[in-house]
């Protein structure tokens, strides 16, 4: 009788979810990483609806059957200490549920931390995504170009975002392509994703970083490799180079629109030491696609901004093999359906 409200709302919600209502961005994935997450979420919702159902059925049963009414006046409820058998039951079953979910969690976490399945042999496109109040800078070291507040990606090619921040902690999130991850000032974090459907996707900073936070959005535009190459060429031909003075000025400006440059800031304002941080091992998780170049260039001791001079970043930015194995060939075949 009471609390039917949330129950109904939940069923209503579920129908919405399972019918794939596309307004729920998170459950409308356009790439394998986001698809893994969406499947995980739907799986966990189903499990949890089962748990809720058991609780709600027992709850309604108890309330209806054992409520005080005229007919049971004078009824004295018995004294019950409990039942070991029952108590073991409702300890063991949840443990089993938790075990199942743990396995799913560990497997899917591994899956989304690494290059999506089926794309492991392709050279990933590296994009450095750095945040400053309240903008995103995307640097393409391979292509030697940089954008502000928009990012273009080729479809069917693994993309590796490497994030860091010029200020407060931010979080790079393109819900339809992959889950979010923090960008921080003293380490580089990574997101691996692939877009398999061309389109324009909402990208944003998900972590509160001050006054302009609400406006810190960007567009992630997934396009075919050919279109992507064309765009890169276009930027190279038509846009100016990003100078250090200009970049410093840009960092100071709170809000800007979209910008494109024919060079990156990585040479004069390199990212913090990569892969090093206090509690973990992104390096190990991503071992299979680690680039030979960033390991040896960044030695172990903790670096700070003051140590910049030690690191001549430039060689990294223009890798020794400037022409990547052309992944466009095979990926273009997948397009257009």
């Amino acid at each position: 009788m009471k609390k039917r409200g949330p129950l109904l709302a939940l069923f209503f919600g579920l129908t919405m979810l399972l019918s794939g209502c596309s307004s729920l961005t998170v459950l409308d994935p356009k790439g394998p990483a986001a698809r893994t997450l969406s499947d995980t979420i739907i799986f966990s919702i189903l499990m949890m609806v089962g748990v809720l159902a058991v609780v709600y059925i027992l709850y309604v049963y108890m309330l209806v059957k054992y409520r005080a009414k005229k007919s049971n006046e004078g009824y004295v409820p018995p004294h019950e200490e409990g039942s070991t058998k029952l108590e073991i039951t409702w300890t063991v079953i949840p443990i089993i549920i938790v075990l199942i979910l743990s396995v799913v969690t560990v497997r899917t976490t591994m899956a989304v931390e690494n290059v999506p399945e089926g794309y492991e042999n392709q050279e990933p496109l590296v994009i450095y995504a750095s945040s400053s109040n309240w903008k995103w800078h995307f640097s393409y070291p391979e292509q030697g170009i940089e954008t502000v507040n928009y990012v273009n990606l080729p479809t069917h090619r693994p993309v590796e975002f490497r994030m860091y921040s010029f200020g407060p902690i931010t979080s790079l999130w393109i819900p339809q392509l992959a889950g979010q991850k923090y960008a921080m000032s003293d380490m580089v974090t990574k997101i691996n994703l692939v877009a398999d459907v061309p389109g324009s996707y909402m990208g944003k900073n998900a972590n509160f970083n001050g006054e302009g936070f609400a406006h810190m959005n960007f567009e992630a535009l997934a396009m075919s490799q050919a279109e992507f190459d064309e765009w890169v060429q276009d930027v190279k031909n038509n846009e100016g180079e990003l100078t250090e003075a200009e970049f410093d000025k840009l960092l100071e400006t709170p809000h800007v629109g979209r910008m494109s440059f024919a060079s990156t800031h990585l040479s004069f304002s390199p990212p913090p030491e990569e892969g090093h941080h206090h509690s973990g091992s992104t390096e190990k998780e991503n071992g299979n696609q680690e680039h030979q170049d960033n390991k040896e260039k960044f030695p172990e001791p903790s670096s700070t901004d003051e140590d910049e001079a030690e690191f001549d970043f430039d060689p990294n930015v223009h890798p020794d093999d400037p022409t990547p194995v052309d992944p466009g060939d095979e990926s273009t075949h997948h397009e257009g359906h």
Binding site: T40, L101, V104, T105, T109, G179
Partner: peptide, 23 residues
């Protein structure tokens, strides 16, 4: 019943992979 919804969504949030989307 209300807290149970809070609890089960807590379990959903506890799953690290899915949390990349809820966080």
């Amino acid at each position: 019943p209300i807290f149970t919804i809070g609890g089960v969504t807590g379990v959903m949030l506890a799953m690290a992979s899915a949390d990349y989307q809820y966080h």
